[in-house]
Write a protein that binds this DNA or RNA. Structure first.
Lengths: 199, 199
DNA sequence: AGAAAATAATGAACGCTGTTCAAGAAACAA
DNA sequence: TTGTTTCTTGAACAGCGTTCATTATTTTCT
């Protein structure tokens, strides 16, 4: 039965990803320990390295899940919203909420680095599109002159600007908006960008 | 001679900070190793812990230097510039340049975290004001209605937005503006924000 | 000046980390 | 069943930050 083998292997992988996700959610990326995660998954220490190349690749899987959940959350946030400006505002607030409610998993998306010289597989690279995908439609309504790569790039800049405000507010301890004012400041930023970006 | 003791102690501290700065500049925060830094500073491993409480506090000193240099660089970038919009644009470009030319030291400012539960001393906290200080004057010209804490907060948001774009462009490998387009995208963002922020 | 006390420098040793690998167990093929 | 392949195991390894008894130095006292 080859099925049995592969099934058990996949089950182990899932248990490891589950355990790693739980551990990151509680203690952040630096709280993820090989010994703890294998203990929680109910396997030996060495088994981790039969399922994944190393800890970094396991983190990749966790980040992959987080990106999927983030994409879904953003989609939900614009489900009942009409008009490009309102969509942008809703997306920004959805992003703020997700970052707050999934703080350590969200932070792991941006703080994790593969070892020098190794880059992430293409499928994972592609998953990051969810961060920008939903910005493109409303942006192109506001700026019909932008198309293709230029549009995509401007969408990336809009995302990065909002992300910067959220990131500094939630993680930097010296600069950054107080969390209580975060939704308001993000709203103001998005509105200003939209007004300014309109031709 | 109490002077001699203190002088030698201070000299050791300086050598350690120098060595740590050099090491971070080359290999990033994760490239900073206690054994390497003490070897480069010409002292024993244990001596580091007579000069600083731990490696984190040594990094704090390096970040302190970087912030001072960044502050000076921003000041230089607006030295011969007139008008609030032009000052904002110059500050943003100065920030982009500094981040590019001092990449790993700049990144250390935002990636370093003290151990959970320990927060940075007030003097270091205060040093981060340089990131926002120069934004306040031109912003208050564009928005005379904003004063005091509200003005300072909006300045923080403007900084965070620019920082986000620079950060994602230089460090995130999946999203973010290509470095070649970074100055242009930042310029567009700042202009849009300024246009949008004007009442 | 020399002796005593206080302080700093030293590097082996500790505990923790991610990762490996020889040995054993389990699953498959004959 | 028997032989072969595959996976699992956890002790062992190398590297890390940090500590601490020991040694060396500097300062203070007489």
């Amino acid at each position: 039965m080859r099925n049995n083998r592969e099934a058990q292997r996949d089950a182990l992988k899932q248990r490891l990803i589950d355990a790693a996700e739980a551990q990151i959610a509680v203690g952040g990326l630096s709280g993820l320990k090989a010994r703890d995660v294998t203990a929680a998954a109910g396997c030996a220490l060495g088994a981790l390295y039969t399922a994944f190349e190393d800890l970094d690749r396991l983190i990749l899987q966790v980040n992959s899940r987080t990106l999927a959940r983030l994409g879904a959350a953003l989609q939900d946030s614009v489900a009942a919203v009409q008009g490009p400006r309102a969509v942008m505002a809703a997306l920004a607030q959805g992003y703020v909420s997700f970052a707050q409610n999934n703080f350590r998993l969200w932070a792991a998306l941006f703080t994790h680095r593969l070892p020098e010289g190794i880059d992430a597989p293409e499928w994972h690279r592609a998953e990051h599109a969810v961060l920008i995908a939903q910005i493109i439609a409303p942006l192109s309504q506001l700026r019909p002159d932008l198309t293709g790569e230029a549009l995509r790039q401007r969408a990336g800049t809009v995302f990065a600007a909002v992300h910067g405000v959220v990131m500094l507010a939630l993680t930097a301890r010296f600069v950054g908006t107080p969390v209580a004012q975060l939704p308001g400041e993000v709203a103001a930023l998005v509105e200003a960008m939209m007004r300014g970006l309109e031709q």
